[in-house]
Each structure stands twice: as structure tokens, then as C-alpha cells.
Write a protein that binds this DNA or RNA. Structure first.
Lengths: 229, 229
DNA sequence: TATTATAAGTGTATTTATAACACTTATGAA
DNA sequence: TTCATAAGTGTTATAAATACACTTATAATA
């Protein structure tokens, strides 16, 4: 008989996903309105139970896919929450993951099926259980990550203006940046391609569009360097 | 009936502790030789099962205390490992925590009871399950943490020389530092008290001893600043 | 067609942080 | 008295970060 493997100690394990998106100059998070117990009718993160033969990473991907229809999304494990009574029904531990997705690309239909909605970070309601804590930790991690590796590919349309990119950084970091210094910093990273095209919607003069150079972007992602902003 | 709470999905949850210590100019980790199944006789991290009415933090503290007799030790959750077959006996997820302790202060007797031993990082043997992965992640986190908040209080004797502190940083970061630049950096943090006493063991001239100024040290810990070394 | 309003685009100087570097000093042991 | 050893100490050079203001292109309007 194996010591310690006491069946009474077995518990449920869940995964909850913090799904970030960006548009209208605002960082948003995707929440669902529960049409099931417990806490039916309240807002929460998208989550689900870990299955017996599945890793946490797999569960996180499965859950994200169920809600957004998206695949091959970068997700990162954040933290495991374990307060004894965090789930009022049964002892359940939950590991949170966060994803960064392009708000335009998800499957509208699925979102509607789940009564899901994008919330600006400043307008997030009270969530069930400890989900507000999970979200707070995710925001902090996201802010820190912008200092360590470039961000944006997942959050911006394919072609974007320098100002859009700056707004994204300003939104994530929640502080204003000097546009000349910002451009210099970004250029020194050498991950953007300047296109001949201009976006004419934001001004009479128009502003040049840029694209990420995928290969270089990925390289910087993995060789995580330090970018101070 | 609550949706999703399927008793078949209940699993075991464990906590494994990476316990760091420092002496003889070497960073060490405390490992136990298992005298129980599975993997009896092999080396592993100190771990244990999460109890039904206990948080992961509590379990980590309990497990550390059982091996070292120490209390009020700073511990930090690292990552949750969930490969399906990581534990060959039963599906078990494990959350790793790391602690930094003073190698002199633990309870020798307990350590002997558990067949525990301090290993230099370069001499760590093959460990059971995914414990080598856990250790690797912990080392990386520890290195990153030295850049974000001061470290050392937990790892050095009460009174120490500037050279000991430098050796500690060099060991953790695994690179050599210039002693004049190091002293300037440390002094600019304003967390040390220079004593009138000298340590005469390391040289004929002797070297002044220092102490951490607890209040200031703690302040810097919490207001995590960025120290580049 | 001249004027105006708007956002885009651009470069330099200052300050601050980091990195490189070598000699003098105190003391115990030979 | 000399020698060997580690401690202790500042300055200069380089790199990075920050602060800062005017010109330009164009559509809309008078």
C-alpha cells in the first residue's frame, strides 16, 4: 500500500481563463454570464474542470477554444488558487491561465451561445468566487511581460499605425509615453516593417501602416530581452 | 445536480518544496532520499499531499516545517505541474513552492530522520518524477528575483562581510561582479548597517562586518524596485 | 483658392545609469 | 624586516533614458 495516497484527499481541479483583447483604445477581458449553477446569472471567467487524462495546458486550450473557436493561441499559466471554500459546492482548486487574442477574430456565434461579453478593464463587474483576484494577477503579469518581450502581435490588426501600437502600450502599462521616444525604442527592436500604405481614417495627413516581421518578432519573444518603457 | 462536478474527475494534489540554502560559497538545495514507495531510495524534493481542508500555501509551510523545523519562512508558489503520468501510482498534480533558508538554522535531527542532504546545484542527482524540471524553474525564478528585490537576509548569517554578500549574488546569478561597482550598488540601496567589528578569518587585514537593516530591507522587498547587476 | 484645424512626423541635448579600470592599506606569518 | 594576502577605495568613459517643440500634409470650410 502506498503511503499518503488517501482517496479522501482527492479533489476537483478547474482551469479558468483570463482572455485579453484590445480595441477602441481599450484593453478588454472576455467574461461569460453563467446560465448554470452555482452563481447562475453572475459574471465569471470562462472555466472548466480538468479531466482525468488531460494536462492543465490542454484543458486551458480546450476551454479557450470552446468559447472563441480559436486555436494556436499563446497561453500562459498564472497561478493556482486554493482557498478551501473558494468554490461553495465542492472543494475545487483552480489554475488560472491567460490568453491574448485579437478581438476581431473570434467566433461571434460561440460568444453569444455562452452569453459572453467583452468588458473594459475599468468596467469589470464583481465576478464569482475569486475570479477578480485572478484577473488582477493576470493584469499585473501582462504589464510585467511588456517589459520582457514585445507584445502586440496578438492584439492588433495585421496592419496598424505607430499610434495604435503606442496606444496599446499606453493602455497596458496605464501610463502616457512620449511618441518620439516610443518610436525610437520600437525601431531599435527591429521587428516592424513600414508599409507604403497609409491609414487615412485618423487624420487628414494620413499615417503610415506597419506590420510585424513575424520571424524577428518571434525571435525577440523567445530570447526575452529587457525593454524599459 | 451541479453540472460538471463529476466525481470521476477528482484527483490527488501534492505540493513539492524547493528549499534553497547557501554556504561554502555555494548555492544548495535540500533533497530527501525516499524510504517509501514509489521510487524508494531515490532522491526527490520534499513534498506531501494537499489535505482536504488546507490551502496550498498552508501545505507548503507544513511540509517545509516538517523537514526543517523552521517557521515563518518566505515561500512563493512557482508553478503547477500536471503531466498525466508524472506520478506513476495515481494521477497527481503538483504545485511547487520555493523557500530560501539559512543553512545553519535548520533542525539537524529532522534532516537526518528524512535522509535529507544539501546538494550544490552543480551536483544535483537525477530526481524522481518531474522534480528536476521543478528545480530548474525555481533556479530561474530565483535569478529573476535578485533583479527585482534584494535577497540575502534569508541566506546569510546575521553578520556578514561585503565579500560574502557579493559571493552570494555571484553564485545566484552565476557570473562575476566587479567589487567596487557591487559595493556602490548595494550602498545605493541603503539597506546595510556597517558594524565596527571585523571578521578576521578571511584575511590578515580583516574585513568589516555588515548587518541588514530589517525595516529598510523589508520596505525594498515589498516596493520591488529594479536592481540591475 | 486661401485659411484653418488636426494629427503625423521628426532630432537633439541633458541627465542618469552602467561598466571598466588599478593602486594603496593593514596585518599575520615567515 | 620582508612578504603574501585580501580589503578597501574613486574616477572616467560609455550607454541608455528622458525631456522637449516645431514642421508637414491634407481635407474641410470659409
Amino acid at each position: 500500500m502506498m503511503v499518503g495516497y488517501n482517496p479522501d484527499d482527492k479533489i476537483f481541479h478547474a482551469v479558468d481563463c483570463i482572455i485579453f483583447g484590445f480595441n477602441d483604445e481599450d484593453l478588454k477581458v472576455l467574461l461569460i454570464q453563467r446560465d448554470f449553477e452555482p452563481e447562475k446569472g453572475k459574471w465569471s471567467l470562462m472555466g472548466g474542470f480538468l479531466k482525468k487524462v488531460e494536462t492543465l495546458d490542454d484543458a486551458a486550450i480546450r476551454i479557450l477554444n470552446r468559447l472563441t473557436g480559436m486555436q494556436n493561441i499563446y497561453m500562459e499559466q498564472l497561478y493556482t488558487f486554493s482557498e478551501v471554500n473558494r468554490d461553495p459546492v465542492e472543494r475545487t482548486i483552480s489554475t488560472s491561465y491567460y490568453a491574448i487574442i485579437n478581438i476581431e477574430k473570434h467566433n461571434e456565434e460561440l460568444i453569444e451561445n455562452y452569453n459572453a461579453k467583452w468588458f473594459s478593464l475599468s468596467e469589470v463587474p464583481n465576478l464569482i468566487f475569486d475570479h477578480n483576484d485572478m484577473l488582477d494577477k493576470a493584469i499585473k503579469r501582462l504589464r510585467r511581460r511588456t517589459s520582457i518581450s514585445p507584445i502586440g502581435f496578438e492584439l492588433l490588426p495585421e496592419k496598424f499605425t505607430m499610434r495604435q501600437l503606442q496606444k496599446l502600450y499606453e493602455t497596458i502599462l496605464d501610463k502616457e509615453l512620449d511618441k518620439r521616444n516610443f518610436i525610437n525604442k520600437i525601431n531599435s527592436m527591429d521587428i516592424l516593417i513600414k508599409l507604403k500604405e497609409k491609414d487615412m481614417t485618423s487624420s487628414t495627413k494620413g499615417s503610415f501602416l506597419f506590420q510585424f516581421e513575424k520571424a524577428k518578432y518571434d525571435e525577440k519573444q523567445t530570447n526575452s530581452f529587457y525593454l524599459k518603457l
